[in-house]
């Protein structure tokens, strides 16, 4: 594999004395899906927040495409090409599905200090938004207010928004949470497809999904990396089974 897109080195976050993430080190290359698993409270979402800029690291380094990004504000990190799918759906509920995506593509303009030409006349943005909607399978719902979409559709919409910003690194925080079987399968296939030209950091509780798409797994327990290896090795690891998988081998 090529140069790592993301290199996290001894990254830590303390919340008033509590070490939510401690000394986490991991690497992620283009074309790779790197899953982070672990019990609730292991620090997975905190880790993603540190990478996206929503949280400030206490110490450690995050290098994205060779550039130090630890501690930068979220908008700077997003502009560099890091897309974030939040654990709790984070969209514009009163806007239509299309406008949600169109606004996301508008972030590509560089500056939106544009005051005269109507936003809807930027044809290339409209087209990119339509493409993003189609990619996640929401083309038929473009005119529906986001608040009126089903939970699964809202997750798809948020992924479409994230894709519409044209990121190279995707931080996906539980993309399958609360999804039905069919929606889940669709999302897993989508993630597998995105892996071709993205680097993907995936936090997910659905072990079937994780083992089917991930090239590499990092197990986080109490904020620390317990193990980091290929899926097969993790599946066989006794330490991981005891700490997290509860002794039963995942199917």
């Amino acid at each position: 594999m090529s140069e790592p897109v993301l290199r996290v080195d001894r990254l830590s976050k303390n919340f008033s004395g509590l070490a939510a993430v401690s000394e986490v080190t991991l690497e992620l290359a283009l074309g790779e899906v790197h899953a982070v698993i672990g019990p609730n409270g292991a620090g997975k979402t905190t880790l993603i927040g540190l990478l996206s800029g929503d949280l400030q690291p206490s110490s450690g380094s995050v290098r994205y495409e060779g550039k130090e990004i630890a501690g930068l504000p979220p908008e700077r990190i997003a502009r560099l090409g890091v897309g974030h799918l939040y654990q709790r759906t984070n969209i514009f509920p009163s806007f239509t599905a299309f406008e949600n995506c169109r606004l996301a593509t508008q972030a590509r303009l560089g500056s939106s200090m544009r005051f005269l030409r109507p936003a809807l006349r930027y044809r290339e943005l409209n087209e990119a938004a339509e493409r993003a909607l189609a990619e996640v399978g929401l083309a038929g719902r473009r005119g529906t207010p986001a608040a009126a979409l089903s939970h699964g559709e809202q997750r798809q919409l948020e992924l479409a928004m994230t894709l519409a910003t044209a990121p190279r690194l995707l931080l996906l925080d539980e993309p399958l949470a609360g999804m039905g079987g069919e929606e889940s399968q669709r999302m897993v296939a989508l993630i597998a497809g995105l892996a071709a030209d993205h680097a993907i950091l995936l936090v997910e509780h659905d072990m079937d999904a994780v083992f089917s798409v991930a090239h590499r797994l990092t197990v986080l327990v109490n904020g620390r990396v317990l193990a980091s290896d290929a899926p097969e090795a993790i599946r066989r690891s006794r330490a991981v089974q005891e700490a997290y998988l509860g002794g039963e081998a995942p199917a």
């Binding site: 939040y86 984070n90 969209i91 806007f95 606004l103 939106s112 910003t165």
Partner: peptide, 18 residues
């Protein structure tokens, strides 16, 4: 459009890169 986005969900606007 950016202003409207800020009104509805400013934090999301930032994570989109605004």
């Amino acid at each position: 459009r950016v202003l409207e986005g800020i009104r509805v969900n400013e934090q999301r606007m930032r994570s989109l890169g605004f």
